[in-house]
Design a protein around this nucleic acid. Structure first.
Lengths: 145, 145
DNA sequence: CGGAATCCTATCGGATACTG
DNA sequence: CAGTATCCGATAGGATTCCG
């Protein structure tokens, strides 16, 4: 295990809170963590992002890949992502109407976060399984820090 | 810029979706991404985790560091985190009652995710600022993928 | 000190049906 | 095809008050 700052004498952890933007005592919308979290939060959001990571898709193609999302919610997600500058909508003239959704540079920048989310999730699942084993073995779980 | 898989011919991106756990068409609670997201989502959650990253804290100490969180919500967050095996509560006998909250190994494992969230947030803010500049310059924003 | 209990509102997300 | 419109139940989260 790595070292750990035991006392709270030094006010901030420079890795966890690199600059003033993270030294907030409340959930400020412009705090970087909140900003990134807002980008990926909401039901279906990460799945929509995952699909778009592979390239542009039409509304129908997205519906087909995520069959259980209702058109209303899909539209909602896409509009939100568009509003945050993560997705662009391109309307192609003609009939029937064609639309293509794609990631902006900012949207594509979410990829490492999605990868890290996945990695962390796997780690949590392993930790959870390990904790259950400990419990059945009679061992005690204590705090780490 | 790095390379990008242009066509959707190959079904899954092996970096984004390393194994079967990520090949879900719906928001499954046991998908790694959902698991990690659930751990840090919810208002105040990341702030509580940040505070606990420095070491154990009492209920009152947490309240003092996050003055605008109501006792109800703080309790709620701590109970949820405890239920997920990320936080442990230690009750110390005596009067008045003392309690100490600390991270479990699983809870401490969230640190890289928080760092990545921060990093991504900064990147998004920069991208957003850049996009506004482009717009005022008259340039067009197009999809990247 | 460390919460629990209650109340209240806003928003979210699902179902369904309809339209240009 | 690509959405919009409406309705609705379930939480989330804040304020306030009280308890052991």
């Amino acid at each position: 295990m790595g070292h750990q700052t035991e006392s709270h004498a030094c006010p901030w952890d420079s890795e966890l809170v690199p600059d003033a933007g993270g030294r907030t005592r409340r959930p400020e919308p412009d705090c970087p963590v909140e900003l990134a979290l807002a980008a990926v939060s909401g039901r279906w959001t990460t799945l929509v992002l995952r699909e778009l990571m592979g390239g542009q898709l039409s509304f129908g193609a997205l519906s087909a890949r995520l069959p259980d999302i209702s058109p209303k919610v899909l539209t909602e997600r896409l509009r939100t992502l568009e509003g945050r500058g993560l997705v662009v909508r391109e309307r192609l003239a003609g009939f029937p109407v064609r639309t293509r959704y794609g990631l902006t540079a900012a949207g594509a920048a979410l990829r490492p976060l999605l990868v890290e989310l996945y990695r962390t999730g796997v780690e949590l699942a392993q930790a959870g399984a390990a904790a259950e084993t400990e419990q059945s073995t009679g061992r005690v779980r204590g705090p780490v820090a």
